[in-house]
């Protein structure tokens, strides 16, 4: 299990990195933390002829408070930094909660936020959470830069809107409104395996305690982070009663996900788990939104 040969570049700037990507096109792969890429290279499942290593670029790893209570994170920020950062814990509890569920402790020391997002594994926590938190991503290429909302970024299995010469450089997460609560629920075989299914819920209650806005996003339930707009719509304006939440979870699990079968779980079991976890995530998010948890 040794990787095939490749040409290696460690550019010192984003400009030079995207220039290299433009030069080598689909032949090149970006190396960030390498915690997903290098295993695939060791298995020789991927054999890029060029690697563009971002780890020599200063300033790509950062965590900064965004305007109005939001958060800005550099693409090369390591999972572990996010996990232990007090601003993240305070401003983005959903992100904070998600971090320990990613990989193993050593993987989180090396793996990066941007790497995980660009890899677009539909079973990845960060992919799901970035959509649930309505984040947006700054993409750079030799042609300039653009911002893409997380919900539009992931377009298929391991597939994003990134062009071959484009690099994800920053993640922005907006502040949640008052009376918001979040939860991420997962079922994984072993504590750090990719979850069989997971559900992230973000609920904002209005002054009466009814659901003002709900975002429910699933992981390992389709070829991308699966959003459940109809379930969310069904809850809008409703009091978060057990029946209402259960009905929403039912809608989401029945109609808004597309799980597949593999050796760990059948699609049928995943759908069942999605319902169970959606309900649990909604319940906890509502409790937190109401300040009860």
């Amino acid at each position: 299990m040794k990787p095939a040969p490749f040409e290696y570049f460690a550019p010192p700037s984003v400009e030079q990195a995207v220039a290299l990507l433009a030069e080598h096109g689909y032949e090149a792969k970006v190396l960030a933390g390498g915690q997903s890429l290098v295993p695939m290279m060791n298995f020789r499942l991927v054999q890029p002829s060029v690697l563009v290593d971002l780890n020599s670029i200063p300033d790509l790893g950062f965590i900064q408070p965004g305007k109005d209570g939001g958060l800005r994170l550099g693409a090369l920020t390591r999972h572990h930094q996010v996990e232990v950062d007090p601003i993240v814990a305070e401003r983005m509890p959903l992100l904070h909660d998600a971090m320990p569920k990613i990989g193993y402790p050593q993987i989180r020391r090396r793996g990066t936020l941007g790497g995980s997002l660009a890899h677009a594994d539909p079973s990845a926590e960060l992919v799901t959470v970035s959509v649930a938190l309505d984040g947006r991503f700054r993409l750079r290429s030799p042609r300039g830069e653009r911002w893409v909302p997380a919900k539009d970024f992931f377009v298929g299995l391991f597939t994003t809107v990134l062009d071959p010469d484009e690099l994800l450089v920053e993640v922005e997460l907006p502040a949640l409104p008052a009376r918001s609560g979040c939860a991420l629920m997962e079922v994984a075989r072993r504590s750090h395996d990719f979850a069989l299914v997971g559900a992230a819920a973000v609920v904002t209650l209005d002054e009466r305690g009814a659901c003002q806005q709900v975002r429910l996003v699933f992981l390992s339930a389709g070829d991308r982070p699966m959003q459940a707009p109809r379930a969310a719509e069904a809850l809008r304006g409703q009091a978060p009663t057990p029946d209402a939440l259960r009905a929403a979870a039912e809608i989401a699990a029945s109609d808004e996900i597309d799980p597949s079968s593999d050796i760990h779980a059948t699609a049928d079991f995943r759908r069942h788990l999605a319902k169970v976890l959606a309900l649990r995530a909604l319940e906890q998010a509502c409790r937190r939104a109401a300040g009860k948890d």
Partner: peptide, 15 residues
């Protein structure tokens, strides 16, 4: 690696 525990099988020596 600089005090951080990492998988040496997932890092190229050049890194």
């Amino acid at each position: 690696l600089d005090g951080e525990p990492v998988r040496s099988c997932l890092i190229f020596a050049v890194q």
